[in-house]
Design a protein around this nucleic acid. Structure first.
Length: 411
RNA sequence: CGGGAUGUGGUGUAACGGCUAACAUAUCCGCUUUGGGAGCGGGGGACUCCGGGUUCGAAUCCCGGCAUCCCGACCA
């Protein structure tokens, strides 16, 4: 893409009411626009980053045999009364609205009830199981207090996956596969080293649920971790019994602030019993379905990465998340740059070409702020020196490479 | 929802109760410049969040609302 076609502008200063680093950087660099508290528009750059994150997660979910679909944002009240979760006293994040035609709808803060209700149309027999589905969905939550930029919003994109299994054993197999898929996803998202599978509060069916917590000062959770033993415990379940069960003592644990980027949860048969989702077993007897729920906060992941990965000049995206792979900067070399740009495009490399008629200093400053991993400069100076100038966003110094070096590099 | 703070061009700031609300940046035009947010000149852009009140006079003081941020609570 040519930068002259990018309508967004960079800003030297962040809005004064935006205190969190992630939102400051993302706004300054033109990735997001704040619509109101807890609601951010995704501008072209931000949209591309979110797309990258989604694609990685999508590939990992597909790899465990889940199928993508999409449910609605507005939800039927009756679906939620069965489980007693329509009540604002029980679920305090509801957005609700009256219909002009009469009655009420809720705006989806989760889809556990609607998906379970929907599956009554599709799951009748043990032969229909298992079912694994997931979606990328805008969740709407009436949070009392939005905070920390993209970290806790009232509207955000979530990947939610649901597993419908025939029995506990089958459920557990998939649950563990999902856990591995999550681990892989966060590795590919560049958060592997700082993300921990964390024991957290469970539900009626299990003692623990598993959260994926990433070390991040802007996070809202306190987690106790041990890197060697790869054990992490959410503060909310840190007690004698948990420590004993996990075979660890408190002084072996390090206390860190974390952001919950994912959560997997076993409902057992509870929800399906409440909602009357049963299947006929081999002997013809009705058996309740085992439900699992698995979430990743897609836009929160973008916030966490922005929060964690930057320097004094701006964002520093991991290779696989960046909106573009190469930032091509031309200085008085439009014809040569056009040639390189075309060739990169043809070979499928995502390149942002700063073709604007602005001074070099501004291009460099903007490139640093936007944080694309590889920077290539072409100018009379570099041409005379033998080609192009190349620098990684994380490098301090640049060096001259040839055109063929560049194509070798991006392969 | 409790507590605290703040609302002034797109963004960041200034302005004693008193002149046509100032400056920087961004933007537009011209000249100049072209490897780290250049320089000079000129232009446009604000019902000072909204509604009341006090006053000869309110961006400024008072009351109410709304919005935003922070702390807490909350976060199956």
């Amino acid at each position: 893409m040519k930068q002259s076609q990018l309508f967004t502008k960079t800003q030297k200063e962040a809005p004064k009411d935006e205190v969190s680093k992630n939102a400051q950087l993302l706004i300054r660099a033109g990735y997001v626009h704040k619509e109101m508290a807890g609601a951010y528009d995704l501008l072209p750059l931000g949209f591309r980053v979110v797309d990258k994150i989604k694609q990685i997660v999508r590939e990992e979910m597909n790899a465990v045999g889940a199928t993508e679909f999409l449910m609605t944002s507005i939800q039927n009240k009756n679906t939620w009364t069965d489980t007693n979760r329509w009540d604002d006293e029980i679920v305090d994040v509801w957005f609700k609205s009256d219909l002009h035609a009469g009655g009420q709808v809720g705006f989806g803060w989760s889809h556990e009830e609607p998906i379970t209700a929907m599956m009554k149309n599709h799951i009748h027999s043990f032969k229909d199981l298992p079912v694994y589905v997931y979606q990328f969905q805008n969740k709407l939550r009436n949070e009392l207090r939005a905070k920390a930029g993209l970290m806790r919003g009232r509207e955000f994109i979530m990947k939610d996956m649901y597993s419908f299994s025939i029995d506990e054993e089958t459920h557990n197999v998939f649950y563990n596969q999902a856990m591995e898929a999550y681990t892989k996803s966060f590795e590919r998202l560049g958060l592997g080293d700082d993300t921990f599978i964390t024991f957290a509060a469970g539900g009626a069916f299990t003692e623990f649920s598993h959260e994926f917590q990433t070390i991040c000062d802007a996070g809202e959770d306190i987690t106790y971790i041990n890197r060697e033993k790869n054990i992490a415990i959410n503060e909310e379940v840190l007690n004698e019994k948990t420590l004993k069960d996990l075979g660890i003592t408190e002084d072996e644990l390090e206390k860190v602030t974390t952001a919950e980027v994912g959560n997997i949860f076993n409902f057992g048969t509870e929800k399906c019993e409440q909602m009357n989702l049963y299947f006929d077993g081999p002997e013809g007897k009705p058996i309740p379905v085992h439900l699992g729920s698995y979430g990743i906060g897609i836009t929160r992941v973008m916030g966490v990465i922005a929060e964690k990965m930057s320097d004094e000049n701006g964002l520093v995206w991991p290779e696989d998340i960046a909106p573009f792979r190469i930032h091509l900067i031309s200085i008085n070399a439009d014809i040569e740059a056009q040639d390189i740009y075309d060739k990169l495009q043809e070979s499928g490399v995502e390149v942002l070409w700063d073709d604007r008629d602005v001074r070099p200093g501004q291009k460099f400053a903007d490139a640093d702020l936007i944080g694309i991993p590889h920077r290539v400069v072409i100018s009379p100076k570099t041409i005379e020196a033998g080609g192009l100038e190349y620098k990684k966003r994380t490098d301090a110094d640049a060096n001259i490479i040839s055109e063929s070096d560049l194509f070798q590099l991006v392969k």
